[in-house]
C-alpha cells in the first residue's frame, strides 16, 4: 500500500545500493551501471516504483547494485518474471537486465513473447558475444568460426542479430547503444523509457576476460565515427568525424552518399521494413554499423489491457462477490431453507 511517494529529485548515488560490485575490473558492465543509475536519477520517477529484474549471467547481477526493488531470477526467465511483475501492477517501472546467452539462448522463448505482447518494460541486453559467468563458451551472438573452450576447432553456429530478431518479434521499440559511449547510452535509455510498450535496447558490451575487443572494429575511438551511424528520429542518416557522409535507401540497397542526399530516418513506420534493412548491414561490410533507435511505434500494452478488460467486466457485471461465485450455476436446496 503506497501512502506516500518519495521525492523525485535524485542524484546518481541515490541509486547505488552499497553492495560491493563484483564484476571483473575493466568490464563494460561498470559503465552501463553508471549510465543506468544516472538515467534513473533523471527520470522523475519515485525510486520505489522501479523494479529491476534479471536472469542469470554476469549482466544479471545488475539488480543487486541498484538501490531499487530488484529480482535476480533464474536463467533466461527474466522477461517472464518481469511480465508477471508488470501485469500484476502496471504502475511499476520495470526494467530487465539480461545478456546474449540469457536472453537469446535459454530465454529465447520468453523475450520474443514479451515483445509480441508489448509488455511495457525496458529490456537491456548486454551483448558481449560470449558466455562470461560459465567461463568463455561461445554464445548465440558469437561469430562463426569462433574458437572457445567449447568450440576448440571453431564454432559452426550462425549467430542471431538481436536487432532484427526483435524487429521480427514485433518489439515496438528497438535500439542499440554502446557501453563506452555514455552520452549516447543515456539518450537511448531515456527514449526507451519514454516509449510506452516493450522497449528493447542492445548494448554492445566488452568482456575483458573472455572476448576482449569483440566490438573494437565498431567502437574504438579512432574509427568509430566512420564505423557507426546513429539512427536519430527525424534526422538525416549522416556519419563520419565531420558528418561528411550520408546513407540513402535505394530500392535494393543502401548507398553511401553525400550528407545532403541522406535519407531522413523515420523509426515510426508500422512495417519496420527500413529498420530491418538497415539492421542487416551489407554483405561486404562497407556500411557503418547502425546504433540509435531502429523502431519506435505505439501499440496497446498487455499490462494495461488486462486491467482495462477487468474494469470493463466489472462495469458490465458488477464486482464479483463470494455469493456470485457460488450461485452462478443451477442450485438446489436440501432441507428447510432459513
Amino acid at each position: 500500500m503506497t501512502t506516500t511517494t518519495s521525492p523525485v529529485s535524485y542524484k546518481k548515488k541515490d541509486f547505488e545500493s552499497g553492495q560491493e560490485v563484483r564484476w571483473c575490473p575493466g568490464c563494460g558492465d561498470y559503465a552501463i551501471l553508471s549510465g543506468v543509475q544516472q538515467v534513473f536519477a533523471s527520470l522523475g520517477v519515485p525510486k520505489e516504483k522501479f523494479v529491476v529484474v534479471s536472469g542469470i549471467g554476469c549482466s544479471s547481477r545488475f539488480p543487486y547494485y541498484v538501490d531499487t526493488y530488484g529480482f535476480h531470477g533464474i536463467h533466461g526467465r527474466a522477461p517472464a518474471i518481469a511480465s508477471g511483475v508488470k501485469c500484476a501492477n502496471p504502475e511499476l517501472d520495470v526494467w530487465v537486465a539480461t545478456g546474449d546467452g540469457d536472453a537469446l539462448s535459454i530465454g529465447g522463448n520468453h523475450i520474443v513473447h514479451a515483445a509480441r505482447r508489448n509488455v511495457d518494460m525496458v529490456v537491456l541486453l548486454f551483448n558481449n558475444r560470449i558466455y562470461g559467468l560459465t567461463k568463455g563458451q561461445y554464445s548465440p551472438t558469437s561469430e562463426p568460426g569462433k574458437k572457445t573452450v567449447s568450440t576448440p576447432f571453431g564454432s559452426l553456429d550462425q549467430p542471431f542479430n538481436p536487432i532484427n530478431l526483435m524487429l521480427g518479434a514485433g518489439a515496438t521499440f528497438v535500439a542499440r547503444t554502446v557501453d563506452t559511449q555514455i552520452p549516447h547510452l543515456k539518450k537511448v535509455l531515456a527514449a526507451a523509457h519514454a516509449h510506452r510498450g516493450f522497449s528493447f535496447v542492445e548494448i554492445l558490451q566488452n568482456c575483458v576476460i573472455f572476448n576482449n575487443g569483440a566490438f573494437e572494429h565498431i567502437t574504438s575511438r579512432e574509427i568509430r565515427d566512420d564505423r557507426q551511424v546513429d539512427l536519430r528520429p527525424g534526422q538525416p542518416l549522416v556519419f563520419g568525424k565531420e558528418l561528411d557522409k550520408g546513407l540513402r535507401f535505394q530500392p535494393t540497397s543502401i548507398e553511401i552518399v553525400s550528407p545532403e542526399e541522406a535519407t531522413v530516418w523515420n523509426p515510426s513506420g508500422r512495417s519496420g521494413a527500413s529498420a530491418y534493412r538497415i539492421s542487416m548491414g551489407d554483405e561486404r561490410g562497407e556500411l557503418p554499423v547502425p546504433i540509435g533507435i531502429f523502431r519506435d511505434v505505439e501499440a496497446p500494452c498487455i499490462d494495461r489491457e488486462i486491467h482495462a478488460q477487468i474494469e470493463a467486466a466489472r462495469a458490465r457485471l458488477g464486482e464479483g462477490t463470494l455469493h456470485d461465485l457460488f450461485h452462478s450455476g443451477d442450485t438446489w436446496q436440501v432441507g428447510a431453507a432459513d
Binding site: I81, A82, V85, C87, Q309, E319
Partner: peptide, 27 residues
C-alpha cells in the same frame, strides 16, 4: 471471473506460467 478481478495470463510455456506467477507474487 474477470469481474472478480482475476488476471489470467496464458503464458508461452510452462516455465513462463510459473515465472509470471512468481513475478506477480513479488508484486
Amino acid at each position: 471471473y474477470k469481474n472478480f478481478g482475476v488476471i489470467t495470463f496464458q503464458a508461452e510455456d510452462e516455465i513462463a506460467g510459473i515465472c509470471t506467477a512468481i513475478g506477480a507474487s513479488y508484486s
